[in-house]
Design a protein around this nucleic acid. Structure first.
Length: 193
DNA sequence: CCCTGATTCGC
DNA sequence: GCGAATCAGG
């Protein structure tokens, strides 16, 4: 895969939105996060809106950082003009986190609706499985990685839609618990559906 | 360990 | 120019 003008535009947009290099790489496809970082440097589009802290706290800081930037701009009007990207970015603090612009990947997922889950519970009960559902991390799509559980939670069309996000071993699509629900042996799947 | 960006350097 | 390897860090 090469850096076409189109892909470069996407890179600039995603980087400007504050997505991490790995997130950008996964969305562009065909490139590693190193490739993204390398390209970012070559394009000289460094400097995120967040000057200090590192990435993990990015999402928590987005709202606050934007408000601080606005406040700073108001307090010091005659001072040297803020960076262009700062001016462009501050007026839109409405969205706390960038929502995915892309269609959810066509991953084979079990239906999250009540009937299926009820059936699962029924199977578990009949199979003598006594296992409480673990707490979920409730990650958004862009927060998923190869090592996070992709078990869907809630309505995919809702803003509240999340994924389990617990650790998945060996790049399995699901955590240990949800893998058991998703890949039930035929012997345990009697009467489901 | 998981993740982040920064840098180097052979290609 | 590209990006894997590596580094430094949360």
């Amino acid at each position: 895969m090469s850096w076409t003008d189109e892909r470069i535009d996407s890179l600039k947009r995603l980087w400007g939105d504050g997505l991490s290099a790995s997130q950008i790489a996964s969305q562009l496809g065909g490139v590693s996060r190193n490739a993204v970082i390398g390209k970012v440097h070559r394009l000289k589009l460094e400097s995120r809106i967040k000057p200090p802290v590192e990435t993990l706290k990015r999402e928590a800081l987005l709202e606050g950082a934007a408000m601080q930037a606005v406040a700073a701009a108001e307090v010091a009007p005659p001072a040297p003009p803020p960076l262009p990207r700062l001016v462009v970015s501050t007026p839109a603090p409405a969205a706390p986190a960038p929502l995915p612009r892309f269609v959810a990947p066509a991953i084979e997922m079990p239906e999250p609706d009540g009937s299926a889950l009820g059936a699962v519970a029924e199977v578990q009960a009949s199979a003598g499985v006594v296992e409480a559902a673990p707490a979920t991390r409730n990650l958004t799509l862009i927060q998923l990685s190869e090592r996070t559980c992709k078990w869907p939670l809630g309505d995919p069309l809702s803003d509240e839609f999340r994924f389990c996000g617990n650790h998945s071993r060996d790049a399995s699509p699901y955590c240990a618990y949800h893998a058991r629900l998703a890949f039930q042996p035929a012997s345990e799947r009697r009467r489901v559906r």
